[in-house]
């Protein structure tokens, strides 16, 4: 996500580009963040390649079933004789690269389910958190009470209920990620905003008679960006974690596109025949989540050092 920034802002000013590069270069100050970034970029790259090329068609039953890794099928085949390597690569797409809109038209928008879900949680959470923190009083109490209730909900139960309430689909998963993520984002934004709100520049804006919305979104929000970015990174990791779990439980992203979680689930049933089948998708999920966590962790450490 940060890597996308410089290209987006090239047009405005050269100093912006430099600024963006400065922001990114602190990633490389930290070894942990660099390792994390490399893992994440690896999966992004694999996903992008899979849009154009995979060793075999991911959904075609071309081979013998439940093969261990061999020279034709680098990672073996699954219970229907499909090539695991191809399915693994394609599995990146729904998580990171594309979202299938509901309806028969088969419209696909860029940006994976995990990314849109976290984006939704950020928008809703930031809005609620800012209002709760800045307006305070009754606003704060009622918003926080509702969010507290949502937090008390075991997330998995909320997922289960939401997903069973609607038909399986990418958008439903995005909705579920938004609903379960928003309270956390709101709490974070609120705590950041409560601190920022005490700064004198907010008093200065108030004594200019600025509108509440201006103060919240123009004066407070930009100064909370750093921690929110780090948090968002962790949340993307957690969303991938969750998508995998839902897939594993058989209520995640709908077929036919391969999904890592359901790949693990299917391979598990044949674990005695081919123990190798569960490993690639399991490692994929774990490594991507770990990569995002490492990246976020390193970034946070560098940001605090930078601020000192």
């Amino acid at each position: 996500m940060t890597v996308a920034q410089p290209t987006a802002t090239v047009s405005s000013k050269p100093s912006r580009l430099k600024k963006a590069w400065e922001g990114i270069s602190i990633v490389f100050e930290s070894r942990v963040a660099t390792v994390g970034l490399i893992i994440v970029l690896f999966w992004f790259a694999l996903g992008i390649i899979s849009l154009f090329w995979t060793p075999y068609p991911p959904n075609a039953n071309l081979f013998e079933q439940n093969l261990p890794p061999n020279t034709t099928n680098w990672l073996g085949t699954d219970h229907l004789g499909r090539d695991i390597t191809s399915r693994l690569m394609t599995g990146t797409q729904v998580v990171l690269l594309k979202t299938r809109l509901p309806g028969d038209l088969g419209i696909v928008i860029p940006g994976g389910v995990a990314l849109w879900g976290v984006f939704g949680a950020l928008v809703v959470g930031a809005f609620l958190g800012l209002n709760a923190a800045y307006r305070g009083g009754w606003w704060d109490q009622s918003i926080m009470q509702v969010l507290d209730a949502l937090v008390a909900f075991p997330a998995i139960v909320l997922y289960l209920v939401i997903i069973t309430a609607f038909e399986q689909g990418d958008v439903v998963v995005i909705f579920a990620i938004t609903i379960t993520g928003a309270p956390g984002v709101a709490r974070l934004v609120r705590s950041l905003a409560l601190d920022i709100k005490t700064r004198d520049y907010i008093r200065a804006a108030e004594t200019r008679g600025e509108k509440v919305s201006y103060i919240m979104f123009k004066e407070i929000f930009p100064n909370a960006r750093g921690p929110i970015l780090v948090d968002a990174m962790l949340r993307v990791g957690y969303a991938i974690f969750m998508i995998g779990t839902l897939g594993f439980l058989g209520i995640g992203l709908p077929p036919p596109d391969p999904d890592w979680g359901s790949m693990v689930n299917e391979a598990r049933k044949f674990i005695f025949l081919n123990p190798w089948g569960v490993i690639p998708p399991a490692v994929a999920i774990a490594s991507l989540v770990v990569g995002l966590n490492l990246f976020a962790d390193g970034l946070r450490e560098e940001l605090t050092r930078y601020q000192k």
Binding site: T198, Y201, R203, R225
Partner: peptide
């Protein structure tokens, strides 16, 4: 305002 470190919006 009093505190130079918080009188300006860092952004």
């Amino acid at each position: 305002f009093q505190n130079p470190d918080s009188t300006m919006n860092p952004s």
